[in-house]
Amino acid sequence: MPRRKLGQLEAEVLAVLAGADDFLSPGDIAERLEGGTAYTTVNTILFRLLEKNLVERARKGRAYVYRLTADESGLAAERMFGHLRLAHDPSGVLTHFVHGLSPEEEAALRALLDEHRSDA
């Protein structure tokens, strides 16, 4: 198995959990990850995520099952992102999902979506 970075696995495990409606066992998760990730690795990742309050677990029989945390009160509310400069990240350290839109870009995006909707 090519050694995957923990951070990448963490995001992938979260993605699998987000896409599932129900609790998943580590075995289910390992199955849904590409590249045959070991059960123990998945457990390690799940433990990390549990510590960060990103997942919650319940007992099912003798094993634990996990799902994405829906309860926001458990989140580290005092952990503010802060650091305005990083939110705009000019140095390329963080890769953001999207940036905010200028009015012109917002208009262009809305036009694009409308056009697509009328096609469908």
Binding site: K5, G7, L75, R85
Partner: peptide, 30 residues
């Protein structure tokens, strides 16, 4: 900047703006 985001760690942060970012490195995450 790298040091700052590493200290911040990964997980959920309290912020009204909907955003997600990837923190690079072996111990990174989202």
């Amino acid at each position: 900047d790298l040091r700052h985001v590493r200290n911040l760690g990964t997980g959920v942060v309290a912020d009204e703006r909907p955003f997600a970012a990837a923190l690079p490195g072996r111990d990174g995450g989202v």
